[in-house]
């Protein structure tokens, strides 16, 4: 599979430090696939930044330490391990006590994309004129919307819109589901991982428009950071953009065949 990846992270205009952290595999093709991870630290003190860095690095290390893997299971276990390490560090040091972060991970292998997340950082897939979120928001307001207590519109301005129901590093027994679902990826699609500093500030349509206008992942990253800051930059802004250039001849034929069969 051939893809182009770019990422960017900015502290925004209102925060004193950047507590987001992101990373992706950047070596020769690996049997386990290509892992991309993004995390958004929690809280205003140094703990948040530490938590997101530890969590992302732990997951990366865990994922590539395993062989012949069942991807969804290893992602889940990697999340558990990241949680364990962050909780442990938080317990050891009183200044880091209670630190936490969101975490969003995607693995691309052949023509498939696997994903999992904790918290409200999001993953989107952009295909032509369509943008759709594939991650699940673990937030109080998203549950309220699902329960029918408030509307999606209410959620945007709800006073508790930043309250998460799940986060890495807070609960040693954090439940994490194995997400066995994968998405079939196709040439020319874009995958976007980002924190609420972007999607909460730049509307989805504007993100879509930026991707389709600029096309280069690097340019898209820069532009979206700019737009978030133009809209006030209330929070740290981080994103990873992947463009699928070529999923490979065999995979491509397989997908076309499947499409014909539908």
């Amino acid at each position: 599979m051939d893809c182009t990846i770019a990422s960017a992270s900015d502290k925004g205009l209102r925060k004193e430090e950047n507590q987001d952290y992101l990373s992706y595999y950047d070596g020769p093709t690996h049997k386990n696939g290509l892992l991309l991870v993004l995390a958004d630290g929690i809280g205003g003190r140094s703990g948040g930044g530490t938590a997101s860095k530890i969590a992302v690095e732990t997951l990366m290390e865990y994922f590539y330490s395993k062989k012949n893997i069942n991807i969804p299971v290893v992602i889940k276990k990697g999340f558990k391990e990241a949680n364990r390490v962050v909780v442990e560090k938080g317990d050891q040091d009183i200044s880091l006590n209670g630190m936490g972060c969101t975490m969003n991970a995607v693995v691309l292998r052949d023509d498939k994309m696997y994903h999992n997340n904790v918290g409200d950082s999001r993953g989107y897939i952009i295909s032509g004129d369509e943008i759709s979120q594939f991650s699940t928001d673990h937030s109080f307001v998203s549950d309220l919307v699902k329960a029918g207590a408030i509307t999606e519109e209410d959620a945007l301005t709800h006073p508790e819109r930043h309250v998460l129901t799940k986060a890495i590093g807070i609960d040693p027994k954090l439940p994490i589901e194995t997400n066995k679902e994968y998405l079939q990826i196709e040439n020319s699609q874009y995958i976007l991982l980002c924190c609420d500093g972007l999607y909460g500030v730049v509307p989805d349509e504007e993100i879509l428009d930026t991707v389709n206008t600029l096309k280069s992942p690097d340019d898209i990253c820069k532009k979206l950071i700019e737009k978030a800051n133009e809209n006030g930059g209330p929070d740290n802004i981080s994103l990873i953009v992947v463009r699928i250039n070529n999923i490979g001849l065999v995979s491509n034929l397989k997908n076309k065949f499947k499409a014909l069969m539908r």
């Binding site: 929690i42 809280g43 205003g44 936490g100 918290g119 109080f140 549950d143 309220l144 329960a147 207590a149 408030i150 006073p159 508790e160 930043h162 309250v163 998460l164 129901t165 799940k166 986060a167 807070i170 609960d171 209330p234 929070d235």
Partner: peptide
């Protein structure tokens, strides 16, 4: 503390099993 939490406050461990309906709507 949590019920009046502001921006960035995270991971409320609110146990929704025992929460009255008026807290939601």
């Amino acid at each position: 503390m949590s019920s009046t939490a502001s921006h960035d406050t995270a991971a409320s461990m609110l146990s929704v099993h025992y929460v009255p309906p008026e807290r939601f709507d």
